[in-house]
Amino acid sequence: MAQHRSKHLLPGFGLSMGISLFYLTLIILLPLAAMLLKVAGMGFPEFWRIVSSNRALAAYRVTFSSAFIATIINGVVGLLLAWVLTRYRFPGRRILDALVDLPFALPTAVAGLVLVTLFADTGWYGQFLEPNGIKVNYTQLGIIAAMTFTSIPFVVRAVQPVLEEVDVDFESVATTLGASRWQVFTRIIWPTILPAFIGGCVLSFARSLGEFGAVVFIAGNLPGLTEIVSLLIFIRLEEYNYEGAAALAFVLLVVAFLTLIATNLLAAWQVRYVERQT
């Protein structure tokens, strides 16, 4: 490490490394190790039996499909909001911008409580939906609603800064050269924001996969139909079935880690991408 430090003028390598490693070890790595030991202790056949049981498979299916749909919704809406917020000046823009972050600031349990009340058959939304045969509460729609709500900001906040950087003059030149608005968007803007857009979607998807507080309020929690993986882990824990809880938690952990690697690769791609563009 010494040769690295000597390359730098700046002080504080030892101190910041010390604090970081100490903290990471104590707060993150040690607890994770405790779980990995639990998983390692159970042997592969047992692990496989748990993570491939019918109920677990159904929980993955519910969780992943709901997160996928929520991400598509947030991708479309996020793109719209990012576009409107960066491209137009209009009264109320600042408020709109600030409100986008509400799901980050509002506790998920509160979000769940509110959604379940909104969509109740006598609720503000439910009274219009239920007569038309649309039942949100305690169905997969409810899970999708909760996941969508809690991850609204991701795509907006990922795309917004990149969209601000896209050179408007460049666009107007293209327009004067006879390019249609649609061509400008598909040829110039879309390629530029694509990495950021995908990055935002990945984060949104990851957050939806792990969402618990909001979902348990509104999901019916019916095994096989509206039971998400996080809830199944919680039930296994309450059942005193620690192997079951640890194995499923391990699956979520691996998915989270893969997501992070994907986001980091995307970030690297984005940097190269932007460099190539300019």
């Binding site: 993150i28 607890p31 990851a206 792990g210 969402e211 809880a245 938690a249 979520l252 997501t259």
Partner: peptide, 15 residues
């Protein structure tokens, strides 16, 4: 360092 934000809070409690 990013891992805690990407993982379900239930997993955080369990570890």
């Amino acid at each position: 360092i990013e891992l805690p934000a990407a993982v379900s809070p239930i997993v955080a409690g369990i570890v």
